[in-house]
């Protein structure tokens, strides 16, 4: 029996994980089912759009700015090994627009927004505000989840687009000031090399990441345990699960697009 204990533990973990996957899938399906059915909480939607989109701009901007700069230095250094230093503008552009822009935007918003959503909803659960919503004839999923999921799905592509521009600008600043690129040539190479599909695929990825970030925040908030520990665990789980799902879905979407 003792020899079987580790196997039993693996079995229990697997069953728990499968149960969670099923539960999240059901929650996503219920949320999607509510999106097109009234009532619509317009005020809550715009409030979420402001919080998720506008207030995330500084975090996303700073992250992509420094990443763009670092990317330019790395490509220059790596390219020098086979005399390909001149490809810095093109690789920075494609790297940021296809991958780093949407992924970094998703991860930063996961840290900032998913955690905040989970903490807010978990606290509402602990303080019986979710029960109060039900007694006031208001569906918590419709009132809390749907506006946040919609807002994040719409806001993330815009954030990623801003992140793309700032990230490329980071590469441009480093390229021109540190690596002696001609400013006009750097910009022309960037613009000429990028294709519409590069940009669109990145923005589609960002929309998917937005859906994931808000859904995970709401799911873990609604399913939190009791007390301060429950709120803390919900917050951690929201950030960890949304980050993992962003990276996993990024790979799947990349396979799909290219």
């Amino acid at each position: 029996m003792i020899a079987l204990a580790p196997l039993a533990a693996v079995g229990r973990s697997t069953l728990a994980m499968l149960g969670t996957i099923g539960s999240v899938a059901l929650y996503a399906a219920i949320t999607l089912g509510h999106i097109l059915r009234p009532p619509f909480y317009i005020r809550e939607f715009f409030s979420a759009l402001l919080t998720i989109g506008y207030f995330s701009l500084p975090v996303v901007g700073l992250t992509t700015l420094f990443t763009g700069g670092a990317l330019a230095l790395q490509i220059f250094s790596g390219g020098a090994r086979f005399n390909a230093e001149s490809v810095v503008p093109q690789i920075v552009a494609i790297g940021i627009v296809r991958e780093l822009g949407p992924v970094l935007t998703g991860l930063m918003v996961a840290g900032r927004v998913s955690a905040a959503i989970a903490a807010e909803i978990a606290t509402m659960k602990v303080t019986e505000q979710l029960d109060a919503l039900v007694t006031l004839s208001t569906n918590p999923i419709k009132y809390l989840t749907v506006p946040r999921v919609l807002a994040a799905t719409i806001a993330l592509p815009f954030l990623a687009a801003v992140g793309d521009i700032i990230g490329i600008m980071g590469g441009y600043l480093v390229g021109v000031t540190r690596l002696d690129f001609n400013a006009a040539v750097y910009l022309r190479n960037t613009v000429d090399f990028l294709e519409t599909a590069d940009v669109v695929s990145g923005l589609v990825k960002a929309a998917v990441f937005g859906f994931i970030v808000a859904l995970m925040g709401c799911y873990h908030g609604m399913n939190s345990g009791r007390g301060a520990q429950g709120v803390g665990r919900a917050t951690t789980n929201a950030v960890v699960s949304s980050s993992i799902l962003i990276l996993a879905s990024n790979y799947l979407l990349t396979e799909l697009f290219f």
Binding site: M124, T127, E128, Q129, D131, A132, V134, T135, L136, S137
Partner: peptide, 20 residues
């Protein structure tokens, strides 16, 4: 019917459960 049923009730929660 859930909405009509709940419309008949009012509830005061232990901690108030006011929306922050």
């Amino acid at each position: 019917e859930r909405d009509a049923f709940l419309a008949r009730f009012g509830m005061l929660f232990q901690g108030g459960a006011l929306f922050d």
